[in-house]
Simulated assay, not measured.
Amino acid sequence: MNALLQPLSIGPLHLSNRIAMAPVTRARAGANGVPTALNAHYYRQRASAGLIIAEATNVSPMSAAFEDAPGIHHPDQVAGWKDVASAVHEAGGKLFVQLWHGGRISTYALLDGAAPLSPSGMNDDLGLLQVYGALRNGYYTRIAASPSRAMSVEEIHATVQEFRTAARHAVLAGIDGVEIHAANGYLPQQFLSSHVNRRQDQFGGSIENRARFLRLIIEAVLQEMPAVQVGVRLSPFALYNNAIDADADGPGDSDTRATYAYVAQMLNGYGIGYLHAADTNAWSGNKDMPRILEILRPHFKGVLIANGGLSFEQAEQLVVAGQADMVAFGRQYIANPDLAARIAQGGPFNEPDPFTFYGGDDIGYTDYPALN
């Protein structure tokens, strides 16, 4: 049997296979970031995944990087997520929701006129930041990022509490767990990055200081749920959103390796349920998974999920070799709601339509056919 089809446990959570649905932003939430019946239907269709990691979900009104992404900071949003969780559970699935704060990856146009928040107000690279919005004609497109401002220590601690509240809301919604989005250049990774984080206080400088924000988030979330119900997503070499120095293969490489070895060991110490290793650069054909696993696997002994640019064959090889315990697929799950069954029989596979990835209605969302 294909190793991806073998069962797996994350603490008390028993998963039917090792195929995860990666968190893929679809920008189809309802008004004010409230999940809708259409969202519940979308996730229910994909409940045969061993684990669904739902799309990036705002923990705060100040977190938006994509317009029409869902939130989990308001009671109406919690009610919407409760319907999503019920739909997934009724279909036999397991659901984590990804807790997200965009930080400097935003614009005043999505933040009610406010400036985005960032570790140190670095703004010399706004053209590299990926912010998206919906046009009045219905199309969804990239829009300009706005200059950010450095967070005060008080704002840092307030943001940590927003993650804690989001975790509490996930519990109230009946969601199985949460994933902290510390990848793709968003706020937790901004603090981890010596390139973006230029603070001179207890949240900047040394690796320990740069990891403090993520550490505080983990400790806050653990006040609301057991460690095994918490995952963390990391993308050590991500160039997306200018997360690290573009010269990461040169002088910046040693700092990146040391930073993420420290973070993996830190997370292992908390006993979290899983570590999600994301090869963001694979989107542009520059695959980094071998060196990512080389850093993370020796320091993290729990469940490790690999994601990014992997074929099904490569994914199975990682599991067989013990380099990963589970593999997450994103675009493949957009087009194939019953991906696990298709992998089991070797296809056929629907091709995703990139023009319907973001925004819109059921077209390119819930209308991809299943087998039979």
Rank of each mutant, 00 (worst) to 15 (best):
A114I: 03
Q265G: 07
F329A: 00
L192T: 01
G302C: 00
Y108E: 14
L95F: 01
L310M: 15
A211E: 12
L111W: 13
W283M: 14
L192I: 09
S152K: 01
P251W: 07
Q317I: 00
E294T: 02
I52P: 02
I105A: 04
R199W: 07
L318G: 08
I363F: 08
H157N: 15
G205N: 12
M266W: 06
F312L: 13
Y186P: 04
L129S: 10
T259P: 11
A264L: 12
L371H: 11
S16N: 14
S16D: 13
V196P: 12
Q202A: 04
G102M: 09
R46H: 07
A3C: 09
S16Y: 09
D338K: 07
R164E: 09
Y368Q: 14
A321Y: 03
H74G: 05
Q332I: 02
N242D: 14
A344N: 06
N336W: 06
N137F: 05
A65L: 04
A183G: 08
A335K: 03
P35Q: 12
I180N: 07
I156K: 11
D176K: 14
I244E: 14
V319M: 06
A114L: 12
G177A: 03
M151S: 08
G322Q: 10
N268S: 13
P236E: 04
T165H: 01
K287N: 14
G93Y: 09
H14C: 11
N350S: 12
G271T: 01
G364M: 06
R199T: 09
L51Y: 06
A315L: 06
F191K: 08
A282V: 03
N2C: 05
V221L: 06
A166L: 01
P61K: 06
E155V: 00
R291D: 10
G231C: 11
N17M: 13
N281M: 05
A87R: 08
F66M: 10
Q77F: 04
P116F: 00
A277I: 08
L5H: 03
H299N: 15
L214Q: 03
I363E: 13
W100V: 04
R142L: 05
G30D: 05
Y132R: 10
E155N: 12
L310W: 11
R46A: 02
Y274K: 08
L192R: 05
N209D: 14
V327W: 03
M21I: 15
G302E: 02
A341E: 15
E219I: 01
Y365L: 02
L222S: 03
I272K: 11
N58K: 06
G121H: 11
A56Q: 13
K94H: 09
S63H: 08
R18W: 04
D362F: 12
A243W: 05
A64S: 14
A91Y: 11
W283N: 15
A54K: 02
T25H: 04
L275I: 07
M326K: 08
A158R: 15
A328I: 04
Q161P: 02
I143W: 00
D279F: 00
F213P: 08
E219V: 05
E351I: 13
L192G: 06
R215C: 02
T107K: 03
T36H: 10
S254G: 06
L126I: 00
H101M: 02
R149T: 00
I217C: 00
Q317S: 07
A114K: 15
G322W: 04
G92H: 00
